[in-house]
Nucleic acid binder design. Structure first.
Length: 439
RNA sequence: CGGGGCGUAGCGCAGUCUGGUAGCGCAUCUGGUUUGGGACCAGAGGGUCGCGUGUUCAAAUCACGCCGCCCCGACCA
């Protein structure tokens, strides 16, 4: 993409409403624009990041055996009356009437709807286990939206729902998601820690929140230090025995504020105790038959008897992750995108667009990078060099290729690593070779 | 929802107390000089001063009402 043809409104100054670093950079780098309190438009750069995150989530869900579908944002109130949550959910649920005065709501979550789909289509225990998910916009009319997309009212969430014949099988489904979540966040360059958590209005007795440590996080959390850098499981056989991995993660203390047990925490050696702030990026629940019983989601068991299915639900805050990643990865100049979620991989900076040689080398580099499948943002505008450097540091692409007459006189271009600041001079061909082999 | 604050050009702000021609910086546009870390000079465009009602010869400024947004707390991906 050429900057001259792209839409990327950058802000030189920080809008007054942005308090935390991720919100400030999201506005300055032109990732989002606030439409009203807690509701955002996603501008092209932000949209590209959102889609990358979404795709990583999708791949890891699929790998763990979950199956994607898509449910609507608007739901009928009737189903929610059936589960009893129409009254329980309170003012956080946005209620709407259509022209026939029928009660609708903008879905804050989808347990009812998915259970309705399940009960009307699945009849036999032989169809289990089943895990269905979608990635869809949700609306929760938060009392106080804040921190940009970190606590929006409208937000993009991946929510999965598992159906199993008994508690043992349900626990296995839970474990699959547990591990898929570890892998998902690690792929985005995040260190996530699963922590014992409260179940809130979703219900159930078993629940973990996946927390990213950050000073600006909204949750107070407590855990054993060794959990932070614990390696993420690779090459997982999701059909095999997952217990050892789960045990490794859950035997060390880790809990959110609501589930905090001071005595257990104090039993950890002092130098391993970690009390910190964290951002909740995922939350998994096992809630047994809380929805399947009232909604009549049952299947025929081996003996022909009706069995209410055991359920769980598993959420990831996709739009929140954009903010969380920035909180975890930035410096005083701007965002530093992890490669996997960067809106472009390479920023190609032409320092002198009216110099024929510079232009020719840049155009050639751009064509070759694009042909090689490297996502490249090519600054072909006649801005001054300093302005371009600042802009590219702000938007945080992992690599910058800097091309100007001075380097070309030596037959060289410069490559800068945004994260480390490390620079190297090499020929254009070597630069292409290097950047191509990174992806 | 309780407490605090803000709404004036795309962004950041001054002006409001004490009513009297709507300003500054950045950004934008034009011309020129510049050009390897956010250039300089000259000129230009851009405003129902959040909305409404009232007071007044006169309202960004005073009064009342409403709306929107932000921050701190209790709730959540």
């Amino acid at each position: 993409m050429r900057v001259s043809r792209f839409y990327m409104p950058l802000l030189r100054e920080t809008p007054a409403e942005a308090q935390i670093v991720s919100h400030r950079y999201m506005l300055r780098a032109g990732l989002v624009r606030q439409a009203s309190a807690g509701i955002y438009s996603w501008l092209p750069l932000g949209h590209r990041v959102l889609k990358k995150i979404e795709q990583i989530v999708r791949e890891e869900q699929n790998r763990a055996g979950a199956i994607e579908l898509l449910m609507p944002t608007l739901q009928s109130a009737d189903l929610w009356r059936e589960s009893g949550r129409y009254d329980d959910y309170g003012k956080e649920m946005l209620r709407i009437k259509d022209r026939h005065e029928r009660d609708l709501l903008y879905g804050p979550t989808n347990e009812e709807l998915i259970t309705d789909i399940f009960r009307s289509t699945v009849r036999s225990y032989k169809d289990l286990p089943l895990n269905l998910y979608h990635i869809q916009w949700k609306f929760r009319d938060e009392i106080r939206p804040r921190f940009g997309v970190m606590r929006g009212r409208e937000f993009l969430m991946k929510d999965a729902y598992s159906f199993d014949i008994d508690a043992t099988a349900a626990r296995r489904s839970y474990n699959r998601m547990f591990i898929a979540y570890l892998r998902t966040f690690a792929r985005m360059g995040l260190k996530s820690v699963p922590m014992k958590a409260d179940t809130g209005p979703i219900g159930g007795d078993l629940s973990h929140e996946f927390i990213i440590l950050a000073d600006t996080g909204e949750s107070q959390v407590y855990c054993h230090r060794d959990l932070i850098d614990m390696p993420v499981p690779e090459n997982v056989d999701y059909e095999g025995d997952l217990d050892p991995i789960i045990r490794q993660r859950t035997s060390l203390y880790a809990a959110t504020d609501e589930k905090h047990d001071a005595a257990a925490f104090d039993a950890i050696p002092a130098d391993k105790r970690l009390s910190a702030r964290g951002i909740e990026v995922g939350h998994i629940f096992n809630f047994g038959t809380k929805y399947s019983k009232p909604l009549g989601a049952k299947v025929a068991g081996p003996g022909g008897e009706d069995i209410a299915v055991e359920m769980g639900s598993y959420g990831i805050g996709v739009s929140r992750l954009v903010g969380a990643i920035i909180e975890a990865s930035h410096d005083e100049h701007g965002i530093i995108w992890p490669e996997a979620v960067a809106p472009f991989h390479v920023g190609l900076i032409s320092l002198k667009t009216d110099d024929a040689k510079t232009r020719q080398v840049c155009d050639d580099l751009y064509a070759k990078l694009v042909n090689a499948g490297v996502e490249t943002l090519y600054d072909d505008t006649d801005e001054r060099a300093g302005a371009k450097f600042s802009a590219f540091d702000l938007i945080g692409l992992p690599w910058q290729v800097i091309v100007g007459p001075r380097g070309l006189a030596q037959g060289q271009v410069e490559i800068k690593n945004r994260r480390t600041g490390e620079r190297q001079n090499l020929t254009a061909d070597a630069a292409i070779n290097m950047l191509t082999h990174k992806h």
